[in-house]
Simulated assay, not measured.
Amino acid sequence: MWAVLGCPHCKAPLQAQEAQTRVTCAPCRLSWPVEEGIPRLAPEHAVAEPPVSGT
């Protein structure tokens, strides 16, 4: 299922994270929860991921 999911914002592929409890979009730096195996991709469930430090 994860291979066919796309970011609701930019349509980029989503990556499963943290034992499949979250899905993330690398280009948008957003993530959504996965509850009972179902990704909650509604805008109100989106969480901005912190920037990755290059040091």
Rank of each mutant, 00 (worst) to 15 (best):
A26I: 07
A26Q: 14
R22G: 01
A42N: 01
P13G: 12
A48W: 00
Q15R: 13
V34A: 08
V4E: 13
V47D: 02
W2C: 01
C28L: 11
L5P: 03
C7Q: 04
V4K: 13
Q17M: 14
G54N: 09
P39G: 03
R29H: 10
G37M: 05
V52S: 12
E18L: 13
A42H: 03
E18K: 09
C25V: 05
K11P: 03
I38R: 09
G6T: 12
A12Y: 04
P8V: 02
G54M: 01
A19C: 02
P50E: 13
P43D: 13
A26G: 07
G37P: 11
W2P: 01
V4W: 07
P33T: 02
A19D: 15
A19R: 12
S53A: 15
P43E: 13
Q17E: 15
P50F: 02
L5A: 01
C25G: 07
V23N: 09
A12Q: 07
A46K: 09
R22A: 09
A42D: 11
I38L: 14
A12W: 06
I38S: 02
H45I: 00
G37C: 06
P43I: 05
V47Y: 00
W2E: 06
H45R: 11
C10K: 04
A3F: 05
K11Y: 05
R40P: 01
V52G: 06
A26N: 10
Q20M: 07
A16W: 04
A48H: 05
A48E: 13
S31I: 00
E36P: 00
Q20A: 13
P50M: 02
L14T: 10
Q20D: 15
C25Q: 08
T21D: 09
V34E: 05
A3Y: 07
P27V: 04
V23S: 09
L41V: 05
C10R: 05
E44R: 11
G54T: 03
A26M: 08
V34W: 08
R22V: 03
M1H: 13
P33V: 06
G54D: 12
G6S: 12
I38N: 03
A46G: 09
P50Q: 10
G6H: 11
W2M: 10
S53N: 13
E49R: 14
P13Y: 00
T55L: 10
G6C: 12
E35R: 15
V52D: 11
P33Y: 03
